[in-house]
């Protein structure tokens, strides 16, 4: 499905603020795989996500979806295949537009907009039943401006928008991190049920190890711009937070060892 092959990214090369964010990263996602991504600050999680989404070009390597090379595609073109939810609840919706208008925009993500009236009668019922499935009381508020919603409601709406036009790939960038614990759990529950129901290939960054273990069927851990740990299915099911920390220490430790060898 998603094929990332040997991509690297350095920000501000040659400057004092130079930051090596990704080093020769390769990753293959099978259709329907739900991958959680963990790692500390500066590990390269968000850079990986933004490289896939096309927020900026990568320095080296290729990215393809379903054998189609999208490495040189601009962000808006990739959106045809990719649904995204950002960390900031304000990011994924237009605040001064109505819920319905936001959903309409999302529903035509994989085609060009035309001069037909944006608000379509036949969509209203569909949107209402989708909003009802969120259990957030949004089904009767199609004409409310999104800016009036709470962070959790907006994030749930963004999730709905990201999955509305049947994306090939769903990218979730710490989408529950800015929410209070109760709302975060609620949004995560909605996430897992939508992903399971629609068999969406998903990449989810989280800073919460417990969520990373509980969700999905594959887990990768990043450190220093590389993928250190990659566990799947049965092996992942057995994993505990303690195991994860041990694995991290071991993997990162050897990494540090290599560095010290180089230095000496």
């Amino acid at each position: 499905m998603l094929d990332i092959s040997h991509i690297s990214k350095t920000f501000n090369p040659g400057m004092i603020t130079e930051k090596v964010a990704l080093i020769d990263v390769s990753l293959h996602l099978a259709p329907g795989e739900f991958v959680t991504v963990i790692g500390g600050n500066g590990a390269g999680k968000s850079t990986l996500m933004n490289s896939i989404a096309g927020t900026f070009p990568v320095d080296k390597g290729t990215i393809s979806i379903d054998d189609e090379d999208i490495t040189d595609w601009p962000e808006h073109r990739r959106a045809k295949y990719i649904g995204r939810v950002f960390q900031d609840p304000m990011m994924g919706t237009a605040a001064n537009m109505m819920i319905e208008e936001n959903l309409e925009i999302a529903s035509r993500r994989n085609r060009r907009p035309n001069l037909s009236w944006s608000s379509k009668k036949e969509d209203k019922e569909k949107f209402q039943s989708m909003l009802a499935s969120l259990h957030l009381g949004l089904e009767d508020r199609l004409e409310s401006k999104v800016g009036l919603l709470s962070g959790g409601q907006r994030q749930a709406l963004t999730l709905l928008m990201a999955t509305l036009a049947d994306p090939k790939l769903l990218l979730l960038d710490e989408h529950t991190a800015a929410l209070d614990p109760k709302t975060a759990a609620q949004v995560l529950k909605i996430t897992t049920s939508i992903v399971a129901e629609r068999h969406l290939t998903t990449l989810m960054i989280t800073h919460n190890m417990r969520d990373a273990l509980a969700c999905g069927n594959r887990l990768i851990m990043m450190y220093g711009g590389k993928i250190l740990i990659d566990v799947k299915d049965r092996e992942k099911k057995k994993l505990t937070v303690k195991d994860l920390l041990l694995m991290f220490e071991k993997a990162a430790g050897s990494e540090l060892g290599d560095d010290s060898l180089l230095l000496s």
Binding site: K80, M91, A94, E101, W117
Partner: peptide, 28 residues
């Protein structure tokens, strides 16, 4: 009429949140 069409609403969303509308497949 125009700003109520699909293209018009894409323009309105561009002013409101350019990142959002790019993530929804529109060339800002």
């Amino acid at each position: 009429w125009f700003f109520g069409t699909e293209i018009g609403s894409a323009i309105r969303a561009t002013g409101a949140n350019p990142r959002m509308i790019r993530a929804n497949g529109i060339n800002t």
